[in-house]
Design a protein around this nucleic acid. Structure first.
Lengths: 216, 216
DNA sequence: GTAAACAATCTTGCATACAATAATTTGATT
DNA sequence: AATCAAATTATTGTATGCAAGATTGTTTAC
């Protein structure tokens, strides 16, 4: 069997965390996971070490692994950084855009339009991700692109909540529209500002949401 | 023995990579490392998985782990991102500066001045790191701060090379001086621009260096 | 002499076994 | 009955063992 096992486990557990299948604060029992996935403890441990390194899981010595609970404040911090690097990607993209990039962005944007006007927030969620990834790719900075994808992924559960609020999908799409215009006009600073705002808004809304609901 | 063993191994191997003790492209043999550190293969493997997750090591199925060789282009990309998030930290710091932050920055800056005028580039390297970390902390965004520290650390070997070039220490210090001024004046945009340039310069210089020396 | 194929060896990947520490339960004493 | 302590149980951390794939070297055929 190939090394894919531990990678597979890593992805499965990571997905479980992202999709809130494993709740923040929850303890991840090694033997439990091992029996569940039909493997021994060893690859489970190796996967958990990886998640620990990424920052999704905390390993307390001799006391097992727990899913990290970022808390509203830290989530806000992550949105703050996301807004900035997303803006950076947009700025670079506006300057470095190739025809292929243009086509990919337009295609994703068109799909967003479709799912947006259909009011299908789940489909929009998927198309939105493709749209943003197309911009990351257009930055032609692979390292930045990877960082963006990783952070985007980590903020996924919180962003998903956002799309449920009234009119958010429509608003999001119109923001995309302005972004596309700036990108295609080669206006780096406007693309940066628009994308930064586009993301910050999500962060601030989220912050409002939790700070009124669950007080810590 | 506590779980600290694998953490220790992780740090040791990571330091080995950063300090070029393990060269890029080098294969990391599990039994070799195990005997070297006096442990079994298991904790070594777990440490390697963590380094893999961080992106310092690549694990090729059934073919072992090798130290990742970023290559000049990717290093340039990392500097590009470093410049941006460093600028972001500066921008936030200028707005959120507390008295304690001010004191920490001034202290590190004073030490930089000392080691700079003494022409001690090794000491300056250390003080420079403290100076930058003080700015990260002053951003009052812990997530950003951690990202900055991690990336700063990864770029360490390339930055170190830079300080050896003629007059770089003195130039670096005078750039710091302007940064401090902007920070203390609360001028967020100037702080951002200055820090961005301060870091980009290193990236560009590095790029010049390698692209003339070793062609890939 | 060179190239290809086969075999021997080495290394990784996973499982199991053993040791050490934390959690829990039970029993005794106040 | 309640609390504290000791012992038992459960779970983590590390080592070792075994199987499967990769690497290397040798031999044979052309």
């Amino acid at each position: 069997m190939s090394e894919n096992v531990v990678q597979r486990l890593r992805d499965e557990i990571e997905n479980g965390i992202i999709s809130n299948d494993f709740a923040p604060g929850e303890r991840l029992d090694e033997v439990q996971l091992a029996t569940r996935f039909g493997v021994s403890r060893t690859p489970i441990r190796e996967a958990l070490m990886q998640l620990n390194a990424i920052g999704l899981v905390e390993i307390r010595p001799r006391r097992g692994a727990i899913v990290i609970d970022p808390g509203p404040h830290r989530i806000f911090e992550m949105f703050e950084v996301m807004a900035e690097i997303e803006g950076m990607a947009g700025s670079l993209a506006a300057r470095r855009l190739t025809d292929a990039d243009r086509a990919a962005i337009l295609a994703a944007h068109a799909d967003c339009k479709r799912s947006s006007s259909a009011g299908d927030s789940d489909a929009y969620y998927y198309d939105n991700e493709r749209f943003h990834r197309a911009i990351y790719a257009a930055s032609h900075n692979d390292f930045l692109s990877e960082q963006c994808v990783a952070l985007h992924r980590r903020l996924q559960p919180y962003r998903r909540l956002q799309l449920r609020v009234r009119n958010r999908v429509a608003t999001s799409f119109s923001e995309h529209d302005a972004v596309v215009e700036a990108l295609f006009a080669g206006d780096a600073e406007r693309a940066r500002t628009l994308l930064r705002q586009h993301v910050s808004i999500q962060g601030e809304r989220f912050s409002d949401l939790v700070s009124t609901l669950s007080r810590r």
